[in-house]
């Protein structure tokens, strides 16, 4: 068995302020196997973004150990093995869609695209934005901006893709399409994906493992392997198996919160 792509052991994150201490994550342990697709599901404020930031070396955990792709998060980040899609698209307003996707080539030392990996233009086409290369972010809809951000994160073929509610602000139709698209990208690239979402359906549809977090403080409420076929048409969401799994997830969520 190969080493996990992401391994968190007893990770806690506390945010200190003069008024109080917020425990965003409390003793969180889980792992994602290489090439796996794990959804992080939980109510607002339970620490999903925080967990993603710990994995991406954007914040250091107060306690616990994190291993990413066999090394420390810092080494993984410096090796340019990570792609991050932020909760708001975080595009640079003075750059066109294409220039935004090209940004990773201009900073951080790596300037040449690895052989055989998709060009910025191809990636824009992949996310359905062919023809929009020269538009500025303020000329794009929220969903289109989010797709530009995804194309940017895919540039260079990252081995681990961290996505923070990338489809949270989208309408259901676009979201369904992008969910299918993401499944396809995942099978094609073989990247490991850690995907944050509020939506039970999205979490179950996309992933082969769902990590349910409960809020205040953020703890692991459940980890479950999703036993669904690899080929997943959208219609799978109407099958009894899917509905049963989704109901179970909702049960885990309910236990963790006071709903």
């Amino acid at each position: 068995m190969t080493a996990p792509a992401v391994d968190c052991r007893h990770v806690s994150v506390r945010f200190l302020s003069e008024r109080r201490t917020v425990t965003a994550l409390d003793d969180v342990s889980f792992s994602v196997e290489p090439g796996g697709f794990t959804s992080l599901l939980g109510p607002s404020g339970c620490g999903k973004s925080t967990l993603l930031r710990v994995v991406a070396d954007l914040i250091a955990p107060s306690e616990g150990d994190v291993t990413v792709l066999g090394t420390s998060p810092e080494e993984a980040r410096k090796a340019r093995a990570l792609g991050f899609v932020f909760q708001d698209a975080a595009l640079l307003p003075w750059r066109t869609a294409l220039q935004n996707v090209e940004l990773p080539l201009e900073v951080g030392g790596t300037r040449a695209l690895p052989k055989g990996s998709a060009t910025p233009k191809e990636l824009l086409a992949l996310v359905g934005l062919a023809g929009w290369e020269n538009s500025f972010p303020h000329e794009l809809s929220g969903g289109m901006r989010q797709r530009v951000a995804i194309a940017r994160a895919l540039l260079g073929g990252p081995r681990l893709l961290l996505m923070d509610e990338p489809f949270g602000a989208l309408d259901e139709i676009t979201r369904d399409r992008l969910n299918e698209e993401l499944r396809r990208i995942w099978t094609e690239t073989g990247a490991t994906i850690l995907f944050v979402t509020h939506s039970v359906y999205e979490a179950v549809f996309l992933a082969d493992q769902v990590l349910v977090l409960s809020a205040n403080p953020g703890r692991v409420a459940a980890v479950e392997k999703i036993d669904l076929p690899k080929a997943r048409p959208l219609s799978i969401r109407e099958t009894p198996e899917f509905v049963a799994i989704a109901a179970r997830m909702r049960g885990y969520l309910g236990k963790g919160t006071h709903e």
Partner: peptide, 23 residues
């Protein structure tokens, strides 16, 4: 600066100079 754009620069391991001129 948009804090997420700053985080993006860090994920990309951009240097301080690059972050200054590009962002």
């Amino acid at each position: 600066v948009n804090p997420q754009a700053l985080e993006l620069m860090r994920v990309l391991s951009a240097s301080k100079t690059e972050t200054f001129f590009k962002l």
